Simulated scan of single mutants.
Amino acid sequence: MKIINSYSDWGKLEEIILGSPKNLTLPDLDISSRNFFDLQESFSQQVNPVELVEQVKIEMEEDFQGLTSILEGYGVKVRRPDAINIDITCQSPHWSSQQSHALMPRDCMLVLGDTLIEAPMPSRNRYFESQSFRNITREYFSKGEKWIAAPKPVLTDDSYLWDGTTPYLAENDPLFDAANIMRCGKDVFYNISNSGNRAGFEWLERTFGDQFNFHQISICSDHVGTTMQLLRPGLALINASRMKLSDVPVQFKNWEFIFFNEPVDIGYSFDWARASVWIAMNVLSIDEKTIIVEKNQHKLAEILDRCGLEVIPTSFRHGRTVGGGFHCCSLDVRRVGTAENHL
């Protein structure tokens, strides 16, 4: 049986990688971080008390353990990383940066069908983030699975551009966070944004174009998981504050849409929020009929229930604090399904 097999976000989940808050770090506001978070040069961040950071890490691990119990109850194999030493500075010939945690495998790795891909991330502090998961990816490789990495980018200062007040990426190298991408069986949608450039799209299309149909979209400024989520064939969840029906990619014209506009603000613990209230949309599907939702999002749960989904509410207290929810902090490695045409 293949270990790596995932073509969508809704096929019956069989194996998943969850992140770890063990070495949680908050990125220095260098040029790459400011570009991603759209922060002006005048913005400065405070140093959060050590005790507060430790408390957040403890509470996040409690929530990860709760999530693990739910997933294992549905027969899902859960894998966790061995976080790398973040006390060592990440350095290239052109820049140096702190290293990042192993919290969000969805950002640094992409599963397309039977292949696991390490993404060429534009944030300097995330340059080696995928190495936190080497205990898992090496094992997959030793068992015959496909494992590749996109070209490592240079990330010089001229990679980061602003169009008036809007940040975007130059085309010097292929650049993308894997969370820019929506998988829909045979079709793959790539969001052009400040965390994914056209060169990144071209690299994916040239490398995997014989297996998938690739589509460029531009529906939000960075990752797609708080703007549009594909729930099952024919049904998508849409952020109603960012998208109208006319903004939905034309390939989905025959689908039904849930336009959601009532997220609950769960608050944040650090000096500024790394995610908006729309982290509420960052749901995780176990299969086409079962979905995990943050426990405070009662309105979203009601809407999904009316669509015939079994909703599992559970705690994820620090989605806004760290900038990621259930979907961001996980990577579905094996789901039932193939490269079908769902459009």
Rank of each mutant, 00 (worst) to 15 (best):
residue 1 M to Y: 07
residue 3 I to N: 05
residue 12 K to R: 14
residue 18 L to D: 05
residue 19 G to C: 10
residue 22 K to V: 11
residue 24 L to A: 05
residue 24 L to C: 13
residue 26 L to H: 07
residue 36 F to L: 11
residue 44 S to N: 12
residue 45 Q to H: 09
residue 50 V to G: 00
residue 54 E to V: 14
residue 56 V to A: 12
residue 59 E to I: 05
residue 60 M to D: 07
residue 62 E to N: 13
residue 65 Q to I: 13
residue 67 L to F: 12
residue 74 Y to M: 06
residue 75 G to C: 04
residue 76 V to L: 02
residue 76 V to T: 07
residue 80 R to H: 01
residue 82 D to C: 11
residue 83 A to R: 01
residue 85 N to L: 06
residue 88 I to G: 00
residue 99 Q to A: 09
residue 101 H to L: 10
residue 108 C to F: 01
residue 109 M to L: 07
residue 110 L to R: 08
residue 121 M to C: 11
residue 130 S to H: 14
residue 132 S to W: 04
residue 132 S to Y: 01
residue 145 E to Q: 15
residue 147 W to C: 14
residue 148 I to L: 06
residue 148 I to T: 10
residue 160 Y to M: 00
residue 169 L to G: 05
residue 171 E to F: 00
residue 174 P to D: 12
residue 178 A to V: 09
residue 180 N to K: 11
residue 182 M to E: 07
residue 186 K to E: 09
residue 190 Y to M: 06
residue 194 N to K: 14
residue 194 N to T: 08
residue 198 R to A: 12
residue 203 W to Q: 09
residue 203 W to N: 10
residue 208 F to Y: 02
residue 208 F to N: 06
residue 215 H to A: 03
residue 218 S to C: 15
residue 223 H to E: 14
residue 224 V to Q: 00
residue 230 L to I: 15
residue 234 G to Y: 03
residue 238 I to C: 03
residue 244 K to P: 00
residue 245 L to Q: 05
residue 245 L to T: 14
residue 251 Q to H: 12
residue 260 F to Q: 09
residue 261 N to S: 15
residue 266 I to D: 10
residue 268 Y to R: 11
residue 269 S to K: 15
residue 277 V to S: 06
residue 282 N to F: 03
residue 283 V to S: 13
residue 284 L to S: 00
residue 285 S to I: 07
residue 295 K to I: 14
residue 296 N to T: 10
residue 298 H to A: 13
residue 298 H to D: 13
residue 303 I to W: 02
residue 312 I to W: 02
residue 315 S to F: 10
residue 315 S to Y: 01
residue 317 R to P: 00
residue 330 S to K: 02
residue 341 N to Q: 04
